[in-house]
C-alpha cells in the first residue's frame, strides 16, 4: 500500500517541503519588488535640493523640506507623550500588580487598543483633541493621536524587556534594603533599557508612516511656511504622497515628486527598523 511505503512518504515530504519553500520565496520576492519599484522610480528625483528646499509653484517643483520637518516633529511629539505612559504602564503590570483579574483586564485593553483601525483613531483625535479640547488641526492634536496609536507597541515592548531582567537582580537590590521603586529605578529599568528603546524605535517607524490618524488631526497638503508652534498645521511625508497621487492637478510633474517622497519615507522607515533589529540582536547576545 502506498501509505506504508517509506520511499513514497519521503518523496511526498520532499515535494511538500519544496512547495512550502516556494511560498517563502514568493513572500520575499513581493518585498523585493515593492522596494525595487520605489527605489527605481524615486531615486532619480532625489537631490540635495529635493530634501532641503521648500515646495514651489503649487507643489509641482521644489523640495519636501516642510514635510520632512513635519514628520520629524510629529514623531518627536508622539514619542514624548507615549514613552512615559507606556513604560510606566509596563512597570505597573510587571513589577507592582499581582497576577489576577486587574492585569488581565488591562492586557485585554492593550490588545484591543492595538486592534483599533487607524482611521478610528483619527476620528477619536478629531472628536477629543481638535474639537473638544480646541487644539484645532495641529501638530499637537496629531502628536497626541499618534501617541495613542503606538501606545500598545511601547507597552508590549517595555513589558517584554522588563520581564527578561533576571529576578536575582531584583532580589539582590531588595535584600540590600532598597524599596520596590528604588529597585525599579536603579536596577530593573537600566537593564531593560535596550529592549524599551527597541520598542520606542519601532514606534517611531510606525508614526513616521501612519497617515489615516492625522488626515483630520494634523496634516495639510500645502502650506508656504514651516510650523512655528504646536498649534500649526503641518505637512507630512505620507500624507503628501497620498495627496500628490490622488488630488494633484499636474500629474506629470507631481507624480515624480510623490515617488521621490516615497523613496525618502521608505528609506527612513527601513533604516529605523534596521536599527531596532540590530539593537534587539545585540541585546539578546548580551543576555547570553
Amino acid at each position: 500500500m502506498k501509505e506504508t511505503n517509506i520511499d513514497y512518504r519521503h518523496l511526498k515530504q520532499k515535494v511538500i517541503f519544496s512547495l512550502l519553500g516556494i511560498t517563502l520565496c514568493v513572500v520575499l520576492l513581493i518585498l523585493a519588488v515593492i522596494i525595487y519599484f520605489v527605489v527605481k522610480r524615486g531615486i532619480g528625483v532625489i537631490s540635495w535640493e529635493f530634501i532641503t528646499a521648500m515646495p514651489k509653484n503649487g507643489m509641482t517643483e521644489g523640495g519636501i523640506w516642510p514635510a520632512l520637518l513635519g514628520t520629524f516633529y510629529l514623531v518627536i511629539g508622539a514619542i514624548i507623550f507615549s514613552t512615559p505612559l507606556g513604560v510606566f504602564a509596563a512597570i505597573y503590570m510587571t513589577e507592582y500588580a499581582k497576577k489576577g483579574r486587574l492585569v488581565s483586564i488591562i492586557r485585554i485593553g492593550v490588545n484591543n487598543l492595538a486592534g483599533v483601525p487607524s482611521v478610528v483613531f483619527g476620528l477619536f483625535g478629531l472628536g477629543i483633541f481638535v474639537k473638544l479640547l480646541g487644539f484645532g488641526v495641529s501638530l499637537l492634536s496629531g502628536s497626541l493621536t499618534l501617541a495613542i496609536v503606538i501606545l500598545p507597541t511601547i507597552i508590549r515592548a517595555s513589558e517584554e524587556a522588563i520581564i527578561t531582567v533576571p529576578d536575582e537582580y531584583r532580589n539582590a537590590s531588595l535584600a540590600l534594603g532598597a524599596t520596590n521603586w528604588q529597585t525599579v529605578k536603579n536596577v530593573v529599568l537600566p537593564n531593560a533599557m535596550p529592549g524599551i528603546l527597541t520598542g520606542v524605535i519601532l514606534g517611531i517607524g510606525r508614526v513616521a508612516g501612519e497617515t489615516a490618524p492625522i488626515i483630520f488631526t494634523a496634516a495639510t497638503f500645502f502650506t508656504m511656511r514651516l510650523p512655528s508652534s504646536v498649534f500649526d498645521e503641518v505637512m507630512v511625508l505620507p500624507y503628501n504622497i497620498y495627496a500628490l497621487v490622488t488630488a494633484g492637478t499636474f500629474p506629470s510633474k507631481q507624480i515624480p515628486i510623490a515617488y521621490g517622497t516615497a523613496f525618502v519615507l521608505l528609506l527612513l522607515v527601513l533604516l529605523i527598523n534596521l536599527v531596532a533589529v540590530g539593537l534587539r540582536l545585540k541585546f539578546s547576545q548580551n543576555k547570553r
Binding site: 515593492i34 520605489v38 517607524g205 510606525r206 508612516g209 497617515t211 505620507p238 519615507l265 529605523i272
Partner: peptide
Amino acid sequence: GIPSVIYGLF
C-alpha cells in the same frame, strides 16, 4: 514596517 501609503502607491 512599510507604510500603508507606499503599499497604496504600489
